[in-house]
Simulated scan of single mutants.
Amino acid sequence: MKIEQAKINLLVIGANGGIGRQTVELALSYGHHVTAVLRNPAKLSLTHPNLTIVKGDIMKPDAFEKYLGNQDAVISAIGASGGITGDAPTTLYSQGNAHLIQAMKKMEVKRAFFISASAVEISPVLPFYVRFVAKYILQKLLKYMYADLLRMETLVKESGLNWTIIRPPRLTDKAGTGKYRVSINSFLKNALSISRADVSHFMINNVNNEATYRSTIEIAY
């Protein structure tokens, strides 16, 4: 489902990742102007009149800070490599987004989305077996990533920006539907899965939704 809205300038960091690329493609299809920031621009094989691709690293914001000047919103879709079998100590989420927040304040950009994960906090309204897996398997296998995501969330909440933290459950590569459930600052019952495309759909269609400002969002089918 496409919702008509004013055209915006959107900067996406981590634009070659699962959610990042979906966000870039969907935003362009809506007619928005997108600045895609990634460490290796060659990894984003897209061309579009409204797309600007920038070489940059969130750990080194000086490289892309100047591109923040005319942006209406920023989406931080960064992700640490390694996955569920290669979890390692990281500061990518906390320190990287601290750099981003500092750069946004300097360039006077207020609106931002940050991607976290549902399992950083055990939801009491999930089925028992899901809570068990989250607590005794996921949180142990991904303890470093979740610890840094929690540090990131604290920094974001203290930033003074018009932030939205997205906590998706299991992510899939299925096509977007535009049909999903959302809870704002509360746990979402039976939040088991969501496609990356629909996470992107939610963010793009809620850039100017003040009800989502300074809020943590759970989203699922």
Rank of each mutant, 00 (worst) to 15 (best):
Glu4Ile: 13
Lys7Glu: 13
Lys7His: 10
Lys7Tyr: 02
Leu11Tyr: 06
Gly14Gln: 03
Gly14Glu: 01
Asn16Asp: 15
Ile19Thr: 15
Arg21Gln: 14
Gln22Ile: 00
Gln22Tyr: 07
Thr23Leu: 14
Thr23Pro: 05
Glu25Lys: 10
Leu26Phe: 13
Leu28Ala: 05
Ser29Ile: 02
Ser29Lys: 15
Val37His: 05
Val37Trp: 09
Val37Ala: 07
Lys43Met: 06
Leu44His: 09
Thr52His: 15
Met59His: 11
Lys60Cys: 12
Pro61Cys: 07
Pro61Ser: 12
Asp62Thr: 11
Tyr67His: 15
Leu68Met: 08
Gly69Glu: 14
Gly79Arg: 05
Ser81Pro: 09
Gly82Arg: 00
Thr85Phe: 13
Thr85Leu: 10
Thr85Asn: 14
Gly86Cys: 00
Thr91Cys: 03
Gln95Glu: 12
Gln95Tyr: 09
His99Gly: 15
Leu100Asp: 01
Ile101Tyr: 02
Lys106Asn: 14
Glu108Ile: 04
Arg111Met: 09
Ser116Ile: 04
Ser116Gly: 13
Ala117Gln: 04
Ile122Asn: 06
Phe132Met: 15
Val133Arg: 00
Val133Glu: 08
Lys135Met: 11
Ile137Asp: 09
Leu138Pro: 00
Leu142Ser: 07
Lys143His: 15
Lys143Gly: 00
Lys143Trp: 15
Tyr144Asp: 11
Asp148Ile: 01
Glu158Gly: 06
Glu158Cys: 12
Ser159His: 02
Gly160His: 04
Gly160Met: 11
Trp163Cys: 05
Thr164Asp: 05
Arg167Ser: 10
Pro168Thr: 13
Pro168Leu: 09
Asp173Met: 11
Gly176Ser: 10
Thr177His: 07
Lys179Val: 10
Tyr180Cys: 02
Ser183Asn: 06
Ile184Pro: 05
Asn185Phe: 02
Phe187Ile: 07
Leu188Asn: 01
Lys189Tyr: 04
Asn190Pro: 09
Ala191His: 07
Leu192Lys: 09
Ser193Lys: 14
Ile194Gln: 01
Ile194Ala: 05
Asp198Gln: 11
Asp198Ile: 09
Met203Val: 06
Ile204Gly: 03
Asn206Thr: 11
Asn208Ala: 11
Ser215Leu: 03
Ile219Glu: 07
Tyr221Arg: 11
